[in-house]
């Protein structure tokens, strides 16, 4: 919590440039300021009302469907499933790709950066409304959970200053506003995301609200958490 307060104070008032574009090659990517809680609150308050029907059309015509699946359930493992995630999370993610703030390098983000360049904030809100309406299929019954992983999820680990995952992502991994849902998420994508945070390739979280908890997680814990959330039913 100290970390958050300090960073919040340092970056207070910084603004996010939405016009900046980023490219994986050649040009130097424009420098985009990281999020502050205040800036996110303002952005969330100004988020247009999304129209799921328009979002559905855009999902098809802007090629989202190709990687994220017909109903937002990803058919392959590099892309996340978006079905049933929170509108705020989808909206912010699209903003971050468009600004280049979310750029994991090595081409991992290049298609998303390109795909979001033509999008208006309204387009992003429409897509967010569409994905939020989709339903992620209930996974097959979960195998027994390692007690250590269960404790990490529910109680955290005070010795490493790791708060419980569930405190932000929800008891059933259902997400909460800008904090994404994790239940049913593609395990491979989960692992990749955690490593990107841990290794500093991803820094579009607000006040390092996610990355600070990844530094002390072991690879084995990340793998186990990925399996846990992939097989967790969002609605028990």
């Amino acid at each position: 919590m100290n970390k958050i307060a300090l960073l919040g104070a340092l970056t207070l008032g910084a603004t996010l440039s939405l016009s900046a574009t980023a490219s994986e090659h050649g040009h130097a990517a424009a420098k985009v300021e990281p999020w502050t809680l205040q800036h996110w609150d303002e952005t969330a308050a100004a988020m247009p009302k999304g129209d799921a029907m328009r979002g559905s059309e855009l999902h098809k015509n802007s090629m989202c469907m190709t990687c994220h699946g017909e109903n937002g359930v990803a058919p392959s493992r590099n892309a996340p499933s978006l079905a049933g995630n929170t509108p705020e999370f989808i909206y912010k993610t699209l903003l971050d790709y468009r600004s280049g703030l979310r750029n994991e390098g090595d081409g991992k983000s290049s298609v998303m950066i390109a795909a979001t360049q033509p999008m208006s904030n309204q387009h992003m809100a429409d897509l967010a409304a569409f994905y939020a309406q989709q339903v992620i299929p209930a996974p097959a019954a979960m195998a027994s959970v390692d007690p250590q992983i269960d404790r990490l999820v529910r109680k955290g680990d005070a010795s490493r200053m790791i708060t419980p995952c569930a405190s932000c992502h929800g008891a059933h991994g259902e997400g909460n506003e800008v904090t994404p849902a994790l239940a049913g998420q593609t395990a491979h994508y989960f692992v990749r995301t955690m490593h990107a945070y841990k290794n500093g390739h991803r820094n579009n979280d607000i006040n390092e609200g996610m990355s600070q908890f990844t530094h002390d997680l072991t690879d084995a814990e990340i793998d186990a958490l990925a399996q846990y959330y992939a097989s967790l039913n969002r609605k028990p």
């Binding site: 990687c67 058919p75 392959s76 493992r77 590099n78 081409g107 991992k108 290049s110 998303m112």
Partner: peptide, 20 residues
């Protein structure tokens, strides 16, 4: 190839590949 934006095919479920 798991390190790029293009989807990897290795290990893809047979029915997913066929449907796509």
């Amino acid at each position: 190839e798991f390190n790029e934006a293009m989807p990897p095919l290795a290990g893809m479920k047979k029915e997913n590949f066929i449907k796509l």
